[in-house]
């Protein structure tokens, strides 16, 4: 493992592991809420933050965190209030974010779109020591939220209306989800890139679902897949000199295809086991009432 002798690779691998954990950890709630493309939208908005970072000579990672968190809160507010025009407002936010990024980088002193490229598609050699510190702090926040509030986030993502009647602070939890997703985008930005970050939020979850029946297992397997493909992609990128973001995403989709192929015989075996257990199953399901009422005429 000679790649560990390079300081930049050590940093890249640390970042990759943290991306592999955090992206599926928040992504699972976005998938559960049926908003899998939210990460994509935040990624677009984060570009303005990167551009501002260059322009103001500030850290692009922290600037992107601030701007994408703001953008995600705005998206959540649009979801509440903009019933009919919501889609258009979101589209303007996405494209405005992207255009703002390109513009700010270009007018920044000594800036060019080449600087932006490493943020769009990820780059191993440019993960600076200060980036690693920022990524570790942000990843700790994401893990604390997604694990610590898992029951609340699960309830809100599963059935928002019921969660409100349970007395949960639904708005606050939705905002927290949005901000956490925004933070995850900036965690993933240096390795996977803003354009492809959403894939790492969604595809590991979709792949894990092929095997699981519970939310907890889906969470665990999705994170395991995320970490595996992030490390695998980073290492491959080092030896083969290919872009890390694209490698990681293609590996994730590969994992999805393999798990889907494995899941088919597994589902068949489960169905057989269920059928075998049927005679001893729930007697209420097969009970024949002595008398028949009008309710019996069910056209199921």
């Amino acid at each position: 493992m000679d790649l560990l002798n390079y300081a930049f690779m050590q940093r890249a691998l640390i970042a990759a592991v943290l991306v592999g954990i955090t992206a599926p950890a928040i992504g699972i709630y976005l998938v559960q809420r049926r908003q899998p493309l939210m990460g994509d939208g935040i990624g677009h908005v984060a570009m303005t933050g990167v551009g501002l970072g260059f322009l103001l000579n500030a850290s692009p990672v922290w600037m992107a965190t601030a701007v994408s968190a703001l953008g995600s809160v705005l998206m959540e507010l649009i979801r509440w209030y903009g019933k009919t025009r919501g889609d258009i407002a979101l589209a303007m936010l996405f494209y405005g974010g992207m255009a703002g990024g390109v513009m700010f980088v270009n007018i920044a002193p000594g800036g060019s779109n080449a600087n932006l490229m490493s943020y769009l598609f990820g780059s191993l050699s440019t993960v600076a020591p200060s980036d690693v510190t920022a990524i570790m702090i942000l990843a700790a926040f994401v893990v604390a939220v997604t694990l610590g509030l898992r029951r609340q986030l699960f309830a809100v993502s599963q059935d928002e209306e019921f969660a409100r009647v349970t007395g949960l602070p639904v708005r606050a939890l939705n905002l927290l989800t949005a901000v956490t997703a925004a933070v995850t985008v900036t965690v993933a930005m240096r390795v996977v890139g803003l354009i492809l970050v959403s894939a790492l939020m969604v595809v590991p979850v979709a792949a894990a679902q092929q095997l699981t029946r519970s939310f907890a297992a889906t969470f665990a397997i999705a994170v395991a897949i995320g970490v595996t493909v992030s490390i695998g992609g980073t290492v491959t990128s080092f030896y083969q000199d290919v872009p890390p973001g694209a490698t990681i995403v293609l590996l994730t989709i590969g994992a999805f295809v393999v798990l889907t192929a494995l899941a088919t015989p597994l589902a068949r075996r489960r169905a057989r086991a269920a059928a075998a257990a049927q005679p001893a199953g729930d007697p209420a399901e097969c009970s024949i009432p002595v008398t028949r009422g009008a309710g019996d005429e069910v056209g199921v």
Partner: peptide, 14 residues
Amino acid sequence: GGVPATVTEIVSSG
């Protein structure tokens, strides 16, 4: 929802 959940997980949220 968009992610598998068991009967226990759903009931627990109540």
